[in-house]
């Protein structure tokens, strides 16, 4: 990850990165006008192949002198592309009667100018290199948040919390089994006490999947306590 400012920036690599950002928006646009993935996927593949080739030949973006600004610029350009793709179909209206696209178009113009300015800043000023990313924590924490959203209806309150809390504990290397299990248990009880018992949130303690499973296994009848 860490880049050393020894090699000069390759202009071609910079152009490839900017085109990549633009392509992001273009793909969004083409999808919105129902161009099929059969056309889009080869397009993306072709770009990736070309980018890979150029990055390898030119040593990637390692020579960018202010990577924090440069990547901000590239990412914002990609965001511009996505919003531009969403803007195309909207009616602009007139200045006396601005349509739904009018104000966003102004914002988009501003953001585009800022992105370019930040991007150029990234190439011209000197800045610190990016530091390492805690991938383990990032993936586990984000993953468990997604997991919670995906299973809260199906598994229900208690199982979703127990799993989320337990796996979240693994996000740091300093974890151990005892504290992870007890954290999960304490959190389940604590959350139940505050959110269900105290605040009366209407969330099923055990969700639809579990309910169906228990009924089909014949473990329980139609009415299981806390399952609704």
């Amino acid at each position: 990850m860490a880049s050393t400012i020894s090699k000069p920036t390759s202009p071609l690599a910079v152009i490839v990165a900017v085109i990549g950002a633009a392509l992001f928006g273009i793909v969004f646009y083409l999808r919105s006008i129902e161009v099929s993935w059969y056309v889009l996927l080869p397009l993306i593949a072709a770009y990736l192949a070309a980018a890979f080739f150029i990055f390898r030949r030119d040593g990637g973006l390692g020579g960018v002198s202010n990577p924090k600004d440069f990547y901000t610029g590239v990412l914002l350009l990609a965001v511009c592309g996505v919003f531009a793709a969403g803007l195309v179909e909207l009616p602009l209206g007139r200045i006396a009667r601005p349509g739904p696209a009018f104000f966003p178009l102004m914002l988009l113009g501003l953001l585009f100018i800022f992105s370019i300015a930040i991007l150029i800043n990234g190439l011209r000023t000197k800045g610190e290199a990016l530091t390492a990313v805690p991938w383990r924590g990032l993936i586990i924490i984000t993953g468990m948040t997604v997991f919670f959203g995906a299973t809260i209806k199906g598994l229900g309150f208690i199982p979703a919390i127990v799993v989320t809390a337990f796996v979240s504990c693994l996000a740091t290397r300093q974890w151990n089994m005892v504290s992870a299990v007890s954290t999960a248990a304490i959190l389940a009880i604590f959350s139940w006490a505050i959110f269900i018992w105290g605040l009366g949130l209407p969330i099923a303690l055990c969700g639809t999947w579990l309910r169906t499973l228990l009924i089909s296994l014949g473990v329980a009848g139609e009415s299981i306590p806390f399952c609704y």
């Binding site: 919670f148 919390i161 989320t164 959190l187």
Partner: peptide, 11 residues
């Protein structure tokens, strides 16, 4: 601490 924060954020 942080598993609790994640969980409470989710709920």
């Amino acid at each position: 601490l942080f598993p609790g924060i994640v969980t409470i954020c989710c709920i």
